[in-house]
Simulated scan of single mutants.
Amino acid sequence: MWTLVLNCGSSSVKFALLRPDSGEVALSGLAERLGSEGAALRIDRASEKGSERRTQALAGGSYPAAFEALLSELDALGLRPDVGAVGHRVVHGGEAFSAPALITPAVLDAIRACVPLAPLHNPANIAGIEAARAAFPELPHVAVFDTAFHQTMPEVAYRYGVPEVWYRQHGVRRYGFHGTSHAYVAQEAARLLGRPLEELNLITAHLGNGASVCAVQGGRSVDTSMGLTPLEGLVMGSRSGDVDPGLHDFIARQSGLNLSEVTAALNRESGLLGLSGLSNDMRELEEAAGRGHPGARLALDVFVYRLAKTVAGMAVALGRPDALVFTGGIGENSAGVRAATLARLGVLGLEPDDEANARAVRGTPGVISRPGPVVALVVNTNEELMIARGAALLLAQPV
């Protein structure tokens, strides 16, 4: 059975038509830089000659435009009848979901109820679900939640120091995100290191437009940098990451913004974009920093500092980390970010291997640090495969 996986982020849509058992991919691609004039759709199709790639501009640059282009591609290639199930990445499941769920009207309502917790992501997830259910009404649709992997965190890691009634009545706690990615790269890191996952203490760093770090002990999440919403933690593409909670009231009073407007600015106008005054795209910032742009240089420095500081903090959750794993668009492709981060982590015994780090680009994972008590490596994430496997496992269960 082929599974169509939709992985909708805040500024991108990854998709793949694949077999959950073998990982064979018939069609995959990425719609990126959504919401900008440079929005484009990249389509990779397996063929007898290998992989064929085609890129097209997306008029309007919106999520619906990306999804319509994907459906048109499936129809044009005659692949639409081969789809047996649809797996959807859903960022926030609150406390309602700790495993994949067959999408029903009640499940969709529960996902909608989590929109205030993930305002950049859950609406895009819901739009993908609704469009796909309309296109494939006869197929089962499964939601796989980013928050599910982190449900193994101990209470000491997920509780905030806030009134108990906030947690009991409103579910105010740390949930964590990027769970499918952290779970996948932990498994792959164990394989690359030739050690059982159950015996490893790993720090996984998923770095993209959204970014988070996770402490994985024996294959289970025991702490992570994101919290109640995807806004907590690291500096990200357009998200601020950690700020003083008093900032909301201060800015509201000083600028006349209401609390919703302040939160929107922290989600959409902050992070790398806010610091640089230029872009939320790491590729553009590295190029600009190389030309001497001060805002781009500051954004890179803050990003790396906060990342290294968070990685070091995760050692507290593990006691003794065995490895640091970089993944995601930035983690897999930016040798500069990786090198700068490792240079700040001598406290963990990490030292970059410049030659190995330079070789570790997408498609060539491996160790990028010199021998020491902790090893650093790059692993290419595959959230689509994890989503397809999660959907397959759920659908294989007896009714």
Results as ranks from 00 to 15, higher is better:
residue 60 G to Q: 14
residue 166 W to E: 07
residue 183 A to N: 06
residue 385 L to T: 03
residue 253 R to K: 11
residue 149 F to D: 02
residue 166 W to H: 11
residue 307 L to G: 10
residue 157 A to Q: 00
residue 143 A to L: 04
residue 120 L to W: 10
residue 325 V to R: 05
residue 288 A to R: 15
residue 77 L to T: 02
residue 175 Y to D: 01
residue 283 R to G: 07
residue 5 V to E: 09
residue 216 V to T: 03
residue 34 L to N: 08
residue 201 N to G: 11
residue 272 L to E: 06
residue 42 R to S: 15
residue 183 A to Y: 10
residue 124 A to T: 06
residue 316 V to P: 01
residue 237 G to C: 10
residue 171 G to Y: 08
residue 364 T to E: 10
residue 296 A to N: 00
residue 191 R to D: 06
residue 200 L to S: 00
residue 32 E to I: 01
residue 125 N to I: 07
residue 95 E to S: 15
residue 27 L to K: 01
residue 389 R to T: 03
residue 243 V to H: 11
residue 279 S to Y: 10
residue 184 Y to D: 04
residue 307 L to N: 11
residue 351 E to Y: 11
residue 91 V to A: 15
residue 282 M to E: 05
residue 70 L to G: 05
residue 26 A to E: 11
residue 118 A to K: 12
residue 366 G to S: 09
residue 191 R to P: 06
residue 346 G to F: 12
residue 117 L to E: 04
residue 108 L to D: 05
residue 393 L to K: 14
residue 316 V to N: 03
residue 230 P to Q: 04
residue 151 Q to R: 15
residue 292 G to R: 00
residue 102 L to T: 07
residue 380 N to R: 09
residue 123 P to S: 09
residue 310 T to F: 07
residue 182 H to P: 08
residue 63 Y to G: 05
residue 208 G to C: 02
residue 112 R to A: 15
residue 202 L to M: 13
residue 279 S to D: 13
residue 276 S to A: 04
residue 260 S to V: 10
residue 179 G to W: 12
residue 53 R to H: 14
residue 207 L to A: 03
residue 161 G to V: 00
residue 203 I to M: 09
residue 214 C to A: 09
residue 130 E to V: 14
residue 217 Q to D: 06
residue 3 T to M: 04
residue 122 N to I: 13
residue 326 F to K: 00
residue 64 P to F: 15
residue 4 L to W: 00
residue 352 P to I: 08
residue 344 R to S: 13
residue 301 D to W: 00
residue 386 M to Q: 13
residue 323 A to Q: 08
residue 354 D to M: 14
residue 208 G to E: 03
residue 43 I to W: 11
residue 135 A to D: 05
residue 376 A to C: 04
residue 152 T to S: 15
residue 87 G to L: 08
residue 285 L to F: 05
residue 372 G to Q: 10
residue 324 L to E: 03
